[in-house]
């Protein structure tokens, strides 16, 4: 499972040599170092990318399971304090990742209330932290999207005697393509954040190192070209995922007649 570290050191030095050799030709060429690793199939890099995607996608899935119904409820259920709840969820979108990381850290620490789980410094802890971080984002954006749809649907569903739970399900299903935007926003935030995962994951080589924590590490090692290159690779991956999601949305909307 674990690659010998000598391999990554070798490729890292190779990358460094390549980067240095071509540096004088222009700043933009520094990006090549990370892409070089990508092209040459550097296993350490692929493991990092894989973990980043695994953690962020799983966190997005969990956050969606909680955030989407929550957003739908906030959109359609009229209750006392709804505006306060909406303001609160919107405000939570601005939660600093470090704070979330710290809270999860204290929760999962062996000396904390959930310490017996023993999952601090594992990918699971990172998933939990990211899920908490992005649930309010998904809920708030979903509420916004679904509130518009609810204005259209409210009377029809009332005339069909549809229950609250049924209305939530209907909004989520019929709004599914627009909700992709909310999911992407959550995923993007999860992918991009470093503060929470580095605190609860520990940036352990080959185990909890993600794109962002690797970038932080390379920065602290003074290998700025590699850090920027990794950042560019991350950007490319996120762009690719967004492009795929938009393609799905466009096609789906056309086929379902939502557009």
């Amino acid at each position: 499972m674990n690659m010998p570290a000598s391999v990554c050191i070798f490729s890292e030095e190779l990358t460094y040599a390549v980067t240095n050799a071509i540096k004088f030709r222009g700043v933009e060429i520094v990006f090549l170092s990370a892409f070089w690793m990508l092209i040459t199939g550097d296993p350490a890099l692929y493991r990092i990318i894989g973990l980043s995607l695994y953690v962020s996608l799983t966190a997005t899935l969990i956050a969606a399971l909680v955030g989407l119904p929550l957003g739908a409820l906030l959109a359609l259920k009229e209750f006392r304090g709804r505006i306060a709840a909406v303001v609160f969820v919107n405000a939570l979108m601005g939660m600093p990742p470090v704070v979330v990381g710290l809270a999860v850290f204290l929760l999962l620490s062996r000396s904390g209330p959930l310490g017996s789980l023993g999952i601090l410094f594992t990918p699971r802890a990172m998933i939990i932290a990211q899920a908490i971080l992005i649930t309010p984002i998904i809920a708030a954006l979903a509420r916004q999207t679904l509130a518009d749809l609810w204005v259209q649907y409210r009377d029809e569903l009332a005339a069909m005697n549809v229950s609250t739970a049924g209305s939530v399900a209907t909004l989520l299903w019929d709004g599914r393509f627009s909700l992709l935007t909310a999911l992407l926003a959550g995923f993007g935030r999860a992918c991009a954040e470093v503060g929470a995962v580095i605190v609860v994951g520990g940036n352990i080589d080959g185990f909890t190192r993600t794109m962002t924590t690797a970038i932080a590490l390379e920065t602290s090692k003074g290998d700025l070209p590699l850090a920027i290159g990794l950042g560019a690779v991350l950007l490319v991956i996120v762009i690719a995922i967004n492009a795929i999601a938009w393609a799905i949305r466009r096609t789906g909307e056309r086929l379902a007649g939502a557009a």
Binding site: Y153, L157, M160, N161, D174, A256, G257
Partner: peptide, 19 residues
């Protein structure tokens, strides 16, 4: 009337299910 963002048949199916 507001059509659900589904096919014509699904719109009726939805009403049938909710009844």
């Amino acid at each position: 009337p507001v059509m659900l963002m589904r096919s014509a048949a699904s719109n009726i199916d939805y009403a049938l299910a909710s009844a």
